[in-house]
Design a protein around this nucleic acid. Structure first.
Lengths: 197, 197
DNA sequence: GTAGTTTTGGACTCTCAAGTCCAGTCTGGA
DNA sequence: TCCAGACTGGACTTGAGAGTCCAAAACTAC
């Protein structure tokens, strides 16, 4: 790819990334071929390698970053403002609704389980996603502690980690079994633990 | 494969399954080829198709069942007897030790994320694993309630689901980031919730 | 031991997907 | 207008891996 993109070129590049991401979400990384992406995005082999000269691996990495961004942005504005019980429950519902709606087409799981472990660069993306997500939850717990709604005795770090793990696992069980009950249980139990102590 | 196996044949078949499982645990499903398995198990192409006539897919399915069995058996005898706080903590430590020791070579994640979603038959195996695992945890919670150690007001079903989701997610975060902290947090928070209510 | 079956090795084919190459078209600026 | 560089289409090469085939060795039952 040349260093300068025209508007047309930038548009094509974006179309490839989004089409590839959708294809991968629907059918998985290993079964998605460059030819599938080419067909879906109405492009040619030449274009794919024009915009991603290092080929499949480079495209997958860009898709990984794209999907990681999406996982977090889909939880906004709730995730950034967990400062009241109302906000926590709005967030909880947003997460549940979001994963219920999308069924088995899931950017999070694709990233965590297929894209994320292939190369060191991809691992970095998933690690940053986890880290950012956890720190948003942690900030929410701390703000609740500061405003006195949650006991200062609660281990905020552990609570945030447990909650995040529950979401991950809930989503992954949903993909395996089709049931969203585990995700709901994990979120509800995770939020409820903030009350106790 | 013929319907009758000699002792020698049964031994070869078992060697193939275990070698394939190990190879897949270490390198993932998509990058493991029949030739890798052949080399590792000191067998030939002819043998692979002799014992698994439907080829790769059939072998993967058998490996999936093998790994599912392993996930549960590795947690015994603790998982079957969660009848005291001591037993719960022994189980907690067994799970943590087990996943800490194995690092990124993980039957659970391979099953849940790679093997398990490919075909309907493989999905059945993962669904049964989840279901059995959850019902063991649930039975443990109920027994604690019956003996009065846990409040009868606690929603045992939800607690079991949340705990299982936390383990799943903790393991999957461990594989992505290398840190076991989330798994520990999820287990500790999940067990602690049994005290509260 | 011998007939029949199971087990084994490995060469071979076939398919599919990644990546290469280049000629032709479009676009924006001088 | 014109031309350099960006964009596009698609034929082609290459390599890898799944699956086939068959002959030879080993084993079992009689």
């Amino acid at each position: 790819m040349s260093d300068t993109l025209t508007a047309k070129g930038a548009d094509t590049r974006r179309r490839i990334i989004e089409g590839a991401a959708a294809e991968i979400r629907e059918h998985g990384v290993s079964t998605t071929t460059l030819d599938d992406i080419r067909a879906r995005t109405h492009t040619s082999k030449g274009q794919l390698f024009h915009y991603f000269p290092r080929g499949r691996e480079e495209l997958l990495l860009v898709v990984a970053q794209h999907e990681a961004d999406r996982v977090l942005s889909d939880q906004q504005p709730h995730l950034a403002r967990l400062t009241s019980w109302r906000a926590w429950h709005a967030w909880r519902n947003a997460v549940v609704d979001r994963y219920r709606a999308q069924g088995t087409s899931c950017p999070l799981s694709v990233l965590m389980t297929e894209l994320g472990r292939s190369t060191p660069a991809a691992r970095t993306i998933t690690t940053q996603l986890i880290s950012q997500w956890e720190s948003d939850i942690f900030a929410g717990v701390r703000s609740m502690q500061k405003s006195g709604r949650v006991s200062a005795a609660l281990d905020a770090d552990r609570a945030a980690k447990a909650l995040l793990a529950g979401i991950q696992g809930g989503v992954s069980i949903m993909l395996a079994t089709g049931s969203i009950a585990h995700l709901e249980a994990a979120l509800d139990a995770g939020i409820e633990q903030l009350h106790d102590v």
